[in-house]
């Protein structure tokens, strides 16, 4: 019998959870079909099938899903509501399941994380496993192994991130959600551009989340978005050891519009705010990065 094919779009949740998903489904003996890096075709699909005011990252997500439609048996679409009180996610993360189900007609694997209603990750993965007709014991074992592998990889990434702090080059903290930074169309052009200038990049999302989440309180008391909290906390954590900060947000990101504005008013480190839309000309952004790096070099 053929293995069940599970389609995972390379956008939004992918960058947070792929290290759990991949080992989990491998343990359960399923085949994973990942969409390729974002390209022009995927972006065009995304723009065609999404609402014109949706955030750019979400448009890309829809494009990836369209790409996967005829290449897999199930689509994996989680819904992440909150990780407890004051740890909300953006409303796009809440509505993604319902939106996709209405736009496309394709069987989905879905789990819901809503700790306020006591729906945690393990319960979600059990639900997925059941939908795939696997035994309870197998699912639990797969989940445990996946979790261990995930933490191992995360620790490694955090260590690499920390090791960059001791370098003698100019250090820039990149504050953005992983689905922005690592996306081929959104953040990668900026990262590549920065690499040209011989700058060390430290990623705000690659720090210990439990530490950064607590530190976020020092910058904003009432903030209740989990992922924003983790980014902001990273700023507070290494504020003294970096030369500059670059904010990247996709247009029009809801949380970013408020949080970045507030943080930029409060911090004293030189910073640059880049907003990315589906405009293909990157020269404007390159000029801004160049002058920003010049300022940082002068400051030194």
């Amino acid at each position: 019998m053929d293995k069940i094919k599970i389609g995972i779009p390379r956008a939004l949740f992918y960058y947070y959870y792929i290290d759990i998903w991949r080992p989990f489904f491998e343990e359960l003996n399923c085949e994973i079909v990942e969409s390729p890096e974002t390209n022009k075709q995927i972006l065009d699909y995304g723009i065609k099938y999404s609402n014109d005011e949706m955030c750019f990252a979400f448009k890309i997500y829809i494009g990836h899903i369209f790409y996967l439609l005829d290449k897999c048996d199930y689509l994996l679409i989680p819904r992440i509501d909150n990780y407890g009180i004051k740890n909300q996610t953006c409303t796009n993360f809440l509505s993604v399941y319902d939106i996709i189900n209405n736009i496309f007609n394709k069987p989905t694997l879905n789990y819901n994380i809503d700790l306020r209603k006591r729906k945690n990750e393990l319960k979600g993965f059990m639900k997925i496993g059941k939908a795939l007709n696997k035994s309870k014991r197998n699912i639990k074992r797969a989940y445990k192994i996946a979790k261990i592998k995930y933490h191992k990889k995360l620790k490694k990434e955090i260590l690499i991130n920390y090791s960059k702090l001791s370098s003698s080059k100019i250090k820039v903290l990149i504050v953005s959600y992983p689905y922005n930074i690592y996306d081929n169309y959104l953040g990668m052009p900026i990262i590549k551009c920065l690499e040209k200038y011989n700058v060390d990049m430290i990623y705000a999302d690659k720090f210990d989340a439990s530490v950064t989440r607590k530190l976020a309180k020092k910058l904003s008391k009432n903030l209740y978005w989990k992922f924003s909290k983790e980014l902001i906390g990273a700023i507070k954590l290494i504020e003294g050891q970096i030369n500059g900060i670059i904010f990247i947000s996709s247009f029009p990101c809801g949380p970013d519009s408020l949080v970045n504005e507030l943080v930029m008013r409060k911090i004293k480190v030189p910073h640059l705010n880049l907003i990315i839309d589906d405009v293909e000309a990157l020269i404007g952004i390159e000029t801004r990065i160049e002058s920003f790096i010049d300022i940082l070099k002068q400051n030194e």
């Binding site: 609402n51 005011e53 796009n92 736009i103 029009p252």
Partner: peptide, 16 residues
């Protein structure tokens, strides 16, 4: 209002 994220999410479904 423009950029109201929840309503933007609801719009395709309402349309349907």
């Amino acid at each position: 209002s423009s950029f109201c994220t929840p309503e933007i999410g609801a719009m395709p479904i309402i349309n349907k």
